[in-house]
């Protein structure tokens, strides 16, 4: 095993351009699988933890920008973020354990590409833009367009997630619901982030498809105020948007029904079209 430890972003870009490396920020995803994962020991790693200037929260007039090394804890304990982007704190506070929250980064959560990532749905529901840096310069990709398939994403081998930009908007509804097998330290069975801004809904779901994804059919139902008289009225759109499976954590049927119930009960007092 080899670990490269750059001090600056430029140095990191250079190392990435020279050979295939696995970038490591907080290391939490790597550590979880380390003991039994013998292949992981053969790889070469780019340890970003020493790179200066990557851990920040910058408030611009138009956007909040999180650095590539900004952790869940950084956000959870920031009162301004909690006020303006409350779902980041909601979701960040439900990721793994307190130790994971202290080390794990938002950018790492995106780049790890897990369909169960808890940080990604809320970022996507806030229309986050991923800023990819490399020796060639920056490239920006809407997070909603970032994933191509299971663990496949618009991130080339020489690129790093340098920053995450969240447009500042007025939201009149924001909610994140995580359903796990217990109240803490659980991998999500069903997760949903909901926002509404200027009459437009964002519905983002994790653990119910090969990637975290937005749900256009559900969003259309909400945007168009289509009548919903019970959870079962949402199932068709859920099946159109998502493809849950039976696995060792839950069943496809449970995931579909539970998402429908969560949406129904949580939006009932919010959407006049929900009876």
């Amino acid at each position: 095993m080899r670990v490269l430890m750059p001090d600056t972003l430029e140095e990191a870009y250079g190392m990435l351009a020279a050979e295939p490396l696995t970038p490591v920020a907080g290391g939490t995803d790597l550590l979880a699988h380390w003991p039994g994962n013998h292949d992981a020991r053969k790889r070469a790693y780019l340890d970003l933890s020493g790179v200066s200037g990557l851990r920040f929260m910058h408030w611009g007039d138009e956007a909040l920008t999180l650095g590539g090394l900004t952790t869940y804890s950084d956000v959870i304990w920031d009162s301004r973020v909690v006020e303006e982007f409350p779902l980041l704190a909601d979701a960040g506070g439900q990721v793994g354990s307190i130790q994971i929250q202290a080390r794990g980064t938002w950018a790492g959560n995106i780049a790890n590409g897990s369909p169960a990532a808890d940080g990604v749905p809320v970022l996507m529901a806030y229309d986050a833009v991923v800023v990819l840096g490399s020796e060639e310069g920056d490239q920006e990709v809407l997070l909603a367009d970032f994933y191509l398939g299971y663990k496949k994403m618009r991130l080339r081998a020489h690129q790093l997630i340098r920053a995450i930009r969240l447009p500042r908007r007025e939201y009149d509804f924001q909610r994140f619901v995580k359903v796990g097998a217990r109240n803490a330290q659980a991998i999500t069975k069903i997760g949903v982030a909901l926002t509404r801004s200027e009459e437009r809904w964002r519905v983002v779901v994790n653990s119910m498809a090969p990637t975290v994804r937005r749900c256009p059919a559900l969003e259309a139902m909400l945007d168009e105020d289509r009548p919903v008289s019970g959870p079962e009225d949402l199932l068709t759109a859920i099946r159109e948007d998502l493809a849950p499976i039976d696995d060792i954590r839950s069943t496809a049927a449970y995931r579909e029904k539970t998402l429908a119930r969560v949406l129904y009960f949580d939006l009932k007092g919010v959407c006049p079209s929900f009876a």
Partner: peptide
């Protein structure tokens, strides 16, 4: 047993 990890075999936490 195929969920032979603590991430997938759930025991109660102090929050449960």
């Amino acid at each position: 047993m195929v969920n032979n990890q603590l991430t997938n075999y759930m025991i109660p936490t102090s929050d449960d």
